[in-house]
Amino acid sequence: MAGTPRLVVVSAGLSQPSSTRLLADRLAEATRRRLAEAGREAAPRVVELRGLATEIAGHLVTGFPAPALREALEAVSGAEGLIVVTPVFAASYSGLFKSFFDLVEPDALAGTPVLIAATGGTPRHSLVLDHALRPLFTHLHATVVPTGVYAAAEDWGGGGDALTPTLPVRVDRAAGELAALLPERSRDAGDGAEQEVVPFAERLAALRRNSRA
């Protein structure tokens, strides 16, 4: 087995349980499965922003993170792959979601593969992926995978239509794209072996193959 990549999942759901966390868990499991098919391991770590809301507000006004928030920020900044999921508020990401990523150090996510996802009550808000989430993580210099996943209320258990694949199909496709971009060896491997450097062109080709699968 190659080194386990540091995969972090950020869920901004406000209720408990929430469809946002449910989608986050499905994406994490699909990514873990795709990596396992390639003979690799992953143990995704979940960061629930709901429990950090007070600390996020405190950091914004004081400039100092409390211990739990500091640990979450360090996990995200040190991730080798991210899955981020937000509920839709006013046709955009939630304030809690944006406030958390406002606290991530500039360039901490540079080059980090990110899978973006969102949940909402109606399919009309699916454009949030491209008009809000994708620009945010492009601004942070992250590498956003081509397929974003939006889940409306009707997607849970729905059969899709002629133009829209079912939610499980979209989840699997996005997970395959993220898995293809994760490093072959984690920076935490620590076994003294020389890390194999895979040219970006090869990784991009693999991502395209997964997108067509």
Rank of each mutant, 00 (worst) to 15 (best):
R187T: 05
G39E: 07
L127G: 12
I56N: 06
A193V: 10
K98N: 03
R26E: 01
L204I: 08
F137D: 04
D161V: 04
L14A: 15
L115A: 13
A110N: 09
E37G: 15
A175K: 10
P17V: 05
I83R: 12
T166V: 08
V9P: 11
R34Y: 02
A42H: 02
L129G: 14
R134Q: 12
R21T: 09
R6S: 00
A213Y: 03
D161I: 10
V76C: 14
P183N: 06
Y93A: 11
H125N: 03
L204T: 03
L69I: 05
G121W: 12
V88K: 12
G158P: 01
G58S: 10
V144E: 07
G120M: 02
E80T: 05
Y150I: 04
A66D: 09
P168G: 10
T166S: 15
L167I: 02
A75H: 12
P123F: 09
R170C: 02
E194F: 11
A36I: 01
S92Y: 09
S19Q: 12
A38E: 12
D107N: 15
G3Q: 07
F101P: 07
A142Q: 08
L23Q: 01
G81C: 03
A24W: 02
P67Q: 04
A108G: 13
H59T: 10
L96A: 01
A68D: 04
F89Q: 07
A189T: 14
G160N: 05
Q195F: 12
L82R: 09
G159D: 13
G81Y: 05
P113C: 15
A193C: 06
G176F: 01
